[in-house]
């Protein structure tokens, strides 16, 4: 009944929604209009070959750099979310450590062209084959499949904003100190998301959202591949990867 009557709870939820949307707009890294305008600007055959010829370590380093940039925007998003900075520092770190990459993967659907299975990467749209020298075909395929499945939901920007806030503020993450406080914030975000969906007659979306396990599995796959890379190229991770990336995944 939150939407039907202008109760103070309803007003609070509306303020929270506006805060999430503003936080998201300010930290979305790439504007949806720009991504849309450039969605057919793909790498040429020669450019793809040049990427494929790069040594594995250089390609890993580049991808780690792009992931780290994206994560920095997610950290800024979290900091602007009302209630997030009121959590204790342990819980802020727990939520970001577990959820930042998941949010990056959700945000990636905006930068994915499902019509030709390409993703915006270093200035142009790239197909999965561009990432060949990483040596993790399965992970790349899984990420592309995930982006494709999210694109099929035709998320609006508001829906991406609220869904990613919910991916981040998850009271089920292990090692939280004040789980009840996180659960309260998660509950408010959940109501805000449902109110938005009801208002836009998109309630059907709820049943089609990816299960949390799917995001978790993708993140585990990423960490496993990083460990495999580390065994192949000991020392490179420490010498050349962004410190924030190492802190989160190594």
């Amino acid at each position: 009944g939150l939407l039907e009557s202008p109760t103070s709870a309803g007003v609070e939820i509306e303020h929270l929604t506006q805060n999430v949307l503003k936080s998201y707009r300010e930290t979305c890294q790439l504007r949806a209009e720009d991504l849309q305008l450039r969605r057919w600007d793909t790498f040429s055959r020669e450019e793809v070959c040049a990427y494929q010829r790069k040594p594995m370590e250089e390609m890993w380093q580049r991808c780690a750099g792009r992931i780290t940039e994206a994560i920095q925007y997610v950290v800024e998003f979290a900091k602007r979310l009302r209630g997030f900075m009121d959590l204790c520092q342990n819980d802020q770190i727990v939520l970001l450590k577990a959820g930042a990459m998941e949010v990056v993967l959700v945000r990636m659907c905006r930068a994915f062209n499902a019509d030709n299975r390409t993703v915006f990467f270093e200035g142009k749209y790239a197909g999965a084959e561009l990432f060949r020298s990483l040596g993790c075909h399965e992970l790349i395929s899984s990420i592309f499949d995930f982006a494709q499945s999210l694109c099929a939901l035709h998320f609006s920007e508001s829906e991406v904003a609220l869904f990613s806030a919910l991916v981040l503020v998850n009271a089920n993450r292990p090692w939280l100190q004040d789980q009840a406080k996180v659960a309260r914030l998660q509950g408010h975000l959940d109501v805000a998301f449902r109110v938005l969906l009801r208002r836009t007659r998109r309630e059907g979306l709820l049943a089609r959202l990816p299960p949390p396990g799917r995001l978790r599995a993708l993140c585990s796959q990423h960490v496993e591949q990083l460990q495999a890379f580390r065994r192949l190229h000991p020392g490179v991770l420490h010498a050349a990867f962004p410190p924030l990336y190492r802190e989160l995944f190594a």
Partner: peptide, 17 residues
């Protein structure tokens, strides 16, 4: 946890950038 995540901790402590 803060000890193991100094960069994240620092990013969280900095004002909005």
């Amino acid at each position: 946890l803060q000890e193991k995540h100094r960069i994240l901790h620092k990013l969280l402590q900095n004002g909005n950038s």
